[in-house]
Nucleic acid binder design. Structure first.
Lengths: 209, 209
DNA sequence: TCAGAACCTGAAGGTTTCTTCATATATCAT
DNA sequence: ATGATATATGAAGAAACCTTCAGGTTCTGA
């Protein structure tokens, strides 16, 4: 379980409070610059300036610009995976409807708690979406979902793997659409209601066994 | 209906065959460089080299790098919108199940006909997703979908606008997931079948009137 | 208190990229 | 055939970027 020395991995872990603050500031600044300037202009210089530190300092923690971006994405993913994991545990063994309702609520809450962060990081995920960190996070989420769905009290799904794949996609996609501004005019209640409908409709249309 | 002089719009239209070939070559090269190098390294120099023309030539048709990328995206979107439009017309007035089955098949065929192009352009759409061209294409597709769904012989959906929003999202998302490699192990038939299930499940879970 | 570790700074070298323009060639209409 | 138009070329200036490193400051433990 060692932290492999990849150029995409953080270079040095902060040990004093001072540097912990620095790393936090860099993370916040990364999101802000990403949101205001776009990924192409999210440079080490700009982020450092926004964070109120020198470029040199930034490079002490991230060997390259990419590592800085990847770190921001990873921090976000951990938050979301955690929320999903927790929700899956909470609703384990319940009804399909209870599960979906509860999970959707928890997921959307986590995703929209910091909407700007979520939105900005899509561009980063686009670029680093194929790397191991991302793949691992995806697998972790899929694992939770599979365990939960398999434990449904009222329904026994035949092909869990396929179900989880589509469930996952249909859970993420509406959130993304809303975050990038496609559904902003829709009231939040109606939005959430329809996400539930989409997922539940799919699951119920699935062959049982 | 004039072509506004924006730096993102093509600079000059080709009039001779010679230049038409050039513009085509640039389009193809853009996709290739995008696929092999990523959007950050998809530069005017690289694209021109790949296309077998000089940078100067490229700048004769696109005032900036961004315009070149936007043009590639637009060409793709026109193809897809066209396919959707045609399918919507074909299945107008049919059963909900016929519609969804037919549309999904047509859409996936169009989207996967040139999978590399589709996949590569997600990164571009991420950056230029909010601009007018994109918004217009989205509205056009939504219009077709709305007209088709409203004409369903067997079902009368209460809130078409909401239904179309989610339908649109649930149609695009699985294709995207598969294109970026998330569902590559799933057989094509099963994939398509589940997209239909997702959409049909949603529509049937919708309140009627 | 003091040495060593942790942390910070920012100027500067080396690249890459964007974009233009003066020049040259190809095509078309007459 | 020839002038006008369309198209192509690629060297080069300017700007932005990435990253390092030598030197300075702050903290911590003994």
């Amino acid at each position: 379980m060692s932290t492999a020395a990849s150029p995409l991995r953080p270079r040095k872990q902060p040990v004093q409070d001072r540097s912990r603050l620095t790393v936090d500031a860099i993370h916040v600044a990364t999101i802000q610059v990403l949101a205001r300037e776009g990924i192409a202009r999210c440079t080490t210089t700009r982020v450092a300036e926004r964070a109120g530190v020198s470029v040199g300092t930034l490079y002490q923690y991230y060997a390259q610009r990419e590592a800085m971006l990847a770190a921001a994405l990873e921090r976000h993913m951990k938050r979301i995976s955690g929320a999903v994991e927790e929700a899956c545990a909470t609703w384990h063994g319940k009804t399909l409807e209870e599960m979906v309702t509860g999970l959707v609520h928890a997921f959307l809450a986590a995703k929209f708690e910091n909407a700007e962060e979520s939105r900005s990081l899509y561009a980063v995920a686009e670029t680093y979406g194929g790397n191991q960190q991302m793949e691992q996070a995806r697998l972790r989420i899929r694992g939770c979902l599979a365990a939960m769905l398999a434990s449904a009290r009222d329904v026994r799904i035949a092909d869990i793997d396929t179900a989880v794949s589509f469930f996952h996609i249909a859970l993420m996609a509406p959130a993304r659409a809303r975050l990038v501004g496609e559904l902003k005019e829709m009231p939040e209640t109606m939005f959430e209601e329809n996400v539930v409908r989409l997922l539940l409709g799919y699951l119920r249309a699935l062959p049982q066994d």
